[in-house]
Design a protein around this nucleic acid. Structure first.
Lengths: 358, 358
DNA sequence: TTGTAAGCGTTATCAT
DNA sequence: ATGATAACGCTTACAA
């Protein structure tokens, strides 16, 4: 059960390089870091050669210990399986890579306990900062955080009671964009299907925006459906069937791609595609292809990621950590699924007539 | 431009705990690790209390330095945007998390140079092992690797000249599964669309399997199309149009989901959906929804990830690193897109007749 | 411009 | 069963 060292031929150390070059450790260390410009030309050359000859690579772990900078950033995410999330990850990883940082990503599968654990582990590696997409709506996270945790930036979801900057979509604007489009297309009733709010600020913001904004609509009525994971299909069948029966010119709006997928499968099953309008949050690669093309409210994932990264980076490097929350506007991708006949909406009976869109 | 320390109230150290508990550093360290069972009950209790009181959390960086075990695993991936890749990541992260390791994932965007850099960075953090989905088909990676790199396991793609274990799909079996299904469904011609082979073992394996296996077919002819990123659409339009014109009972097979998406968009555009069979590698969430449901050859991403993780783990902990490559069989998900009329294939003119599948 | 020496927080070795 | 002490590889005062 003993541990077998993997590094058989041990890497060269700074000391060996120093000896080889006939200089001091300090000079080598200087050469590696900021202080290089302090060194004389010949010295630089000798060190460079030794480094080359010994194939020396600095050990960041040792460097971190003494230097107090790990150049590690932690990211905790609820669901690495969501393309939107992945896109944010990607842009954050990229932004930090440029700046010499390495991103450590942990997946919580929406489990607050796992989230707490991951947060602990990240701290134990002395990550310099953390980007968190929290899976605990009600601030459980705060308790599990060390009093003196690394600087942190939230994405999408705020944490109650914490004064942490949050970068997210402008949910009110996004909802307005969607509703306005639906209205313009002449739909008369809008069913908003969302995952259970569960205390998540983003879900709540959208739901609230939906209610608020429908108050001011005259030609458009609306209702919400909270779709939990259990019984999702049965619930949807019931709700969508009723929608089709009871409403003239109905439209469905989904709170994200996951919900959209479930909804579309049920719509497909009950032959409801084309009989109702359809719009959803999240633009994905398959959006143009499903049901002849679905209209989407796209989240600017790259911008959110980029901004989260720079916000965090500033916290690390600026004296006054004037951390700012920020929300970005959504974009509308209009496709067949919200297209209606000229002005007047037509309930289409045959699927063929809603056939393939662009 | 000075660095502002983020850890204002410094975390407690082992030394402080030791003092607080009135014991030696060694004992505290023992308490934290394997040696806990060597300690007496009262001692354990006292240490536990001090740890609690001081909110002590061990510093893994320091521990790594002296202990020579970082409990870090590096993973380098060509495209974090691919769901298949993400699924593998997920299962690997999970497998290692169970064992107390943390996964550091780097994305190369299929850039060999980035790959080399990431590999370097990972080594500099003394990751104990590496999982690599290489973006350099022809072994450039080898050169950039340190002579004494951490144990490594490949996924999907082998590296020429390297004796590294590779966990992947059984491409020959997968192709056979697909071709056999297509044949059984009564298609007469199969167009295989793949990304440029570019020296990648997985792509090559599939392409080779395609050629080999079609040799033995009597009722089925075939051809391959290498689709590069430039001009993809124009190329596809031309190829697919020709396919529809020149062949009776044609079918299209795509080498992965990305290619499938592009192909489907073009098929959609030229109103070709339903006029040709369709089958693709990679099962995704939208597979049942697009074009009435598409038939897919699913890769067992979870198994691949799990196996890659355990293979690497063994290399770290077993004396005889009898590292084994392994390939897993694919599964077929049959849907509308390869359904034909009873036995005899019918070239369907109306889309309605290929309408929504389950 | 270069070097010396003292740590960083932990684990390993060797005593007791 | 417990402790003193020396590393781990690097950075950083402080000297020269």
């Amino acid at each position: 059960m003993a541990y077998i060292s993997a590094y058989a031929p041990k890497r060269a150390t700074i000391l060996q390089v120093a000896k080889d070059a006939g200089v001091s450790k300090t000079s080598v260390s200087r050469y590696l870091g900021e202080g290089r410009r302090l060194l004389s030309e010949p010295m630089q050359k000798r060190i460079a050669q030794s480094i080359e000859r010994l194939n020396f690579k600095p050990d960041r772990i040792a460097s971190s210990l003494r230097g107090r900078r790990t150049r590690l950033i932690g990211m905790v995410v609820t669901d690495i399986t969501t393309p939107y999330t992945v896109q944010i990850m990607r842009s954050i990883e990229n932004a930090f890579y440029q700046r010499g940082y390495t991103l450590v990503v942990c997946n919580t599968d929406s489990d607050p306990e796992l989230e707490a654990n991951h947060l602990q582990v990240l701290q134990s590696y002395n990550v310099e900062g953390i980007i968190l997409h929290t899976s605990s709506g009600l601030g459980d996270t705060l308790g599990s955080l060390q009093r003196d945790h690394a600087p942190m930036v939230l994405i999408d979801r705020t944490i109650e009671g914490a004064e942490l900057p949050c970068i997210s979509l402008d949910n009110a604007q996004a909802m307005a964009l969607g509703i306005e489009h639906v209205r313009q297309q002449g739909f008369h009733h809008l069913l908003y299907i969302t995952q259970p709010l569960g205390g998540f600020s983003s879900r709540e913001a959208r739901a609230r925006a939906f209610d608020d904004q429908l108050q001011h609509q005259h030609t458009l009525s609306g209702e919400q459906l909270e779709l939990s994971d259990e019984n999702a299909e049965a619930t949807l069948i019931e709700a969508l069937t009723r929608l089709l029966e009871q409403h003239h010119a109905p439209c469905v709006m989904c709170s994200n791609a996951k919900v959209a997928l479930k909804t579309l499968r049920v719509l497909d099953k009950i032959e409801g595609i084309g009989k109702t309008g359809f719009i959803t949050f999240d633009e994905e690669a398959w959006s143009p292809l499903v049901a002849g093309g679905i209209t989407t409210i796209a989240q600017p994932a790259d911008q959110i990621g980029e901004r989260a990264a720079t916000t965090l980076y500033r916290q690390l490097h600026e004296a006054s950590p004037a951390a700012q929350s920020y929300s970005f506007p959504a974009t509308l991708h209009i496709r067949r699924s919200t297209q209606t006949g000229a002005g007047e909406h037509t309930v289409t009976r045959q699927r063929a007539s809603v056939a393939q869109g662009k």
